[in-house]
């Protein structure tokens, strides 16, 4: 796990001065269910990528999609958005 900054190292005024800092913020522990992608059913439509509120869906080289579990909160919106039911929400072990 990365080292958290002390109060002297943090910019004052609750500011975030570097863009894109949310990349440093892991949310994987928030999840109860995780999406599992079935590449065979995937039609590469990209609806899961569009609907994911966290931007946690990655585009694979072959045009199918996958999830970055560091940023997936397990909301299940991708499963609802998938017209061909290529995504299943599976309970975390």
């Amino acid at each position: 796990m990365r080292k958290l900054k002390g109060w002297k190292e943090i910019p004052i005024g609750a500011m975030i001065v570097e863009p894109g800092s949310s990349v440093e913020f892991e949310v994987s522990s928030w999840r109860t269910f995780k999406p599992v992608f079935d590449k065979k059913k995937c039609t590469k439509c990209g609806m899961c990528w569009i609907f994911c509120p966290e931007g946690a869906i990655n585009l694979n080289k072959d045009g199918t999609y996958d999830v970055n579990l560091s940023f997936c909160k397990g909301c299940g919106i991708c499963q609802r958005a998938c017209a061909v039911k290529a995504i299943t929400m599976v309970k975390e072990g």
Binding site: L4, G6, W7, I10, I12, A14, M15, I16, P19
Partner: peptide, 20 residues
């Protein structure tokens, strides 16, 4: 100089920010 203000401070950071 652009930055984010009015941010969320989860338990990992709120304490340090308040102490400032």
């Amino acid at each position: 100089f652009a930055y984010s203000i009015g941010v969320v401070g989860p338990p990992e950071i709120y304490y340090e920010m308040k102490y400032q």
